[in-house]
Design a protein around this nucleic acid. Sequence first.
RNA 1: GGGCUCGUAGUGAAGUCGGCCUAUCACGCCUCCCUGUCACGGAGGAGAUCGCCGGUUCGAAUCCGGUCGGGCCCGCCA
Length: 434
Amino acid sequence: MRTISKDIIGLIGQEVTIEGWLHKKRLLGGLTFINVRDRGGLTQVVIKDKDEVEKLRGLQIGTVLRVTGVAKEEPRAPGGAELHDAKLEVMVPVTEEPPIEIDKPLSHKSENLDTLFEHRSIGLRNLQETKIFMIRSEILRYIREFLYSQDFTEINTPKIVAGDAEGGAAVFKLDYFGKEATLAQSPQLYKQIMVGVFERVFEIGPAFRAELSATTRHLSEVTMLDVEFGFIKDHDDVLKLLQELVFNVLTRLYSEHADELKSLNAPELTLKPEFPRYTMAQIHEMYQKATGKDMSGELDLTPEEEKWICEYAKKNDGCEAVFATGLPESKMKFYHMKGENGTARSGDLLFRGIEISTVPQREHRHEDLIQQMKDAGVDVTAPGFASYIAAFKHGLPPHGGFGFGIDRLTEKAIGLGNVKEAVLFPRDINRLAP
RNA sequence: GGGCUCGUAGUGAAGUCGGCCUAUCACGCCUCCCUGUCACGGAGGAGAUCGCCGGUUCGAAUCCGGUCGGGCCCGCCA
């Protein structure tokens, strides 16, 4: 019977067998400590028998072991317990020295990220690296639990799609049995269609972006949370749902994983249930007043302004998340709903200096949608649009939703410097492997 | 697409306006010592044709040109 490391504390006095990877050796002469890693963490094993220690000679970190010993309560051991009188069995010997260390912090300096990703399969065994992805897993779990509690249904939509459906982002083209297809840049059209079926849907999946962008916040393959729900009263309903989701997920993360976040040097969380809201025009004006730089000619916020408004909101509103509303109509997509004074009913959610989400209300009226598509130069007869338009023709209620970057949220929740650090195997303009 | 930068043992760094470099340090690795370590400690050792190609020079890690590979910012985008 195999015991998992975190359960040893409950089996004091009993003989237990653990299986895992040799994580660290410390030879002190007549006494040897080894750490064995399994899915529950590390177990410290104390070995006094020289013959048992000899079994590890020539074997490197990563060697897979079966260890049988007696569980002892020991305040000096990590976790309060350790194994004594251990017998070792080498299940998979490893003689190759690891290319990257796993028991000391790895360099996350931007110029060293390439090494980090090159040796990803080993580096991820470093407990500090593992924590990043444990936290990412928890963020996904909290998101799902919140949305289930709000009666949402999780869906999966195709990632191979016909043509350039949405517009905006650059797409990857591929040959699909002789036809031209693209990798989906977003589940936008499908999730709207599904509002006509389930009312409330969400999807967590990949989206592909072919922009030639090489920055700390861009990936060619991102993981998006896409939410869409019907029977909204107004745009405010959409902003409120996102606000509640983000507040719920982040406060839960910071309370349930305080230790891990602290060990990763994550900043303190400053958040309020009601996120401050500023219009794009207001932000341009406030930024100009503060810095003297005039950005009013820009339709969108510049990266510098995004950082600035987040700092401002943290200091003056006590909240690191902030909505930028009143996106200019000229920047809106054909499926967004027009607002007042040449703006779209849309907003951006910014957190710790970066855009995490775009939050629009959709145009649900069939005739108006068709007109907006034509105005945007979209071919409404293209095969990719037929079933989309049909959903509207057969009745879609007022609805809205948002796309939401999981990678960016994970990065910023932990306080990392580059979105790629929050991705197991990042894809960017230079990297296709591992 | 534009601009700016970087490339030195397995890993992270120092040295870079020509010579004191037979290339320095830390971690890791190997050998030995060490009975409470937990980034263990101590002694010794191996490991680098300084990304690659060419040039200048008596002499190049260091200067010049090219090339390949990274990184950061802008634009685009989320």
